[in-house]
Amino acid sequence: MTGPAPVVPGPRTGPEGPFPFRQFIVKMHGRCNLACTYCYLYEGPDNSWRDRPAAASAAVLERTATRIAEHAARHALRDLALVLHGGEPLLAGAGPLAAVAGRVRELVPPGCQVHATVQTNATLLTEERLAVLADAGVRVGISLDGGTAAHNRRRVDHAGRPSWPAAARGARLVAERFPEAYAGLLTVVDPTLDPVETYESLLDLRPPALDLLLPHGNWSSPPPGLTGLRYGDWLCAVFDRWWAAGRREVRVRLFEECVALLLGLPAATEALGLAPFDAVVVETDGSIEQVDSLKSAYPGAARTGLDVFRHSFDEALRHPGVAARQAGTASLAGQCRACPLLRVCGGGHYAHRYRAGHGFRNPSVYCADLQRFIRHVASRLTAAASARTSDGSSAPGSSVTGPVSAGSSAPGSSVAGPASAGPTATGPASAGPAGSAGPASAGSASTWPVAAGGGVS
């Protein structure tokens, strides 16, 4: 049994980077008991999981914990996130998950707080397992696409049977019996579903937080149904329902980070902004990789060639793929650097920029949808800022200057979304300034030349 890692000097970590890793995603199990039809990991182009052990060995986990502690010491981290992931991490059992969290906490220097979560499909959650996780200070994030069987029709097991009954049971168990361990819900946007109905069904599961993830896709393998502004409209409809609720019913990461970025505050999401990315993955065989979402681009996109037995995480910081995600605007396409939404959009999710033969130096395949969404949120913020304070007075310093052509009523992009009959856009803040036909409206698209030579791996 070794003690906390000694503090030794490391490479520079100033504002110019490299920025140390602070989020460590540990693949506890490389397989999944579900076979979701849209899974980018098992249905995507990268099949590297087939050649790896199903579960991480004790040796891999011990070495990983040691490397995390070494990195925390070298960079004097005060906080780090330990994400126990998969596949389905609970296939490894709750005990091993708790043990890894405990071991990392043992090894990091005093004063470094370890925030541990497990991301699960919830089908294997039981009262006993949740008690083990909660006692170990491991919070539980759940992946679900809505709060009904219909919303989760694509989340099936290997025999094609719906996962919803078991997942719903697990999710309700967390909400009712272990609310302090409930981290939140991750939902992949399905634009064929009613946005407001989907959101409200998720509220029924009483999550403390929620995030809405655009399905992984890129210019060479576009996401499903990427026509018009379906994804942007879908997000706008949910935003209006959330914004006008009269109280904050749930934290919605994408929405709140967009507000933060619009107001010039620091933000925390891969989906938006220019913050340097600081997450790293350890696979079940000990390989150090970039995050799984890159595997949706092409086989080997996440590979670094490093492993925890022979390499430190500092060596991974020097990998060109990692460096590109910490380079801010330098790794963006020219179109993005010239875009007025740059500091908010940040080029969108890195994986969504890929184009075969041209790497990642492209705008997001969701460019138009992101523009639609960001301008919509800006218009709602602008309207709110022009309103009165809670004591009835107008708010000095709350006037907004500059163009407000937020596109919030662009033809062909109704806020309610194609399938919605829900109560969208009914609150006082939803009567935003009438936009011009937004820049992303039909008929105003232009074709940009493709920037070549942007590959990073």
């Binding site: 620091p266 304070t389 708010a395």
Partner: peptide
């Protein structure tokens, strides 16, 4: 905008 008058880091999108 005056934020007081007008409302705010893990980035891995767990």
């Amino acid at each position: 905008l005056d934020l007081a008058r007008l409302l705010l880091l893990w980035g891995f999108d767990s």
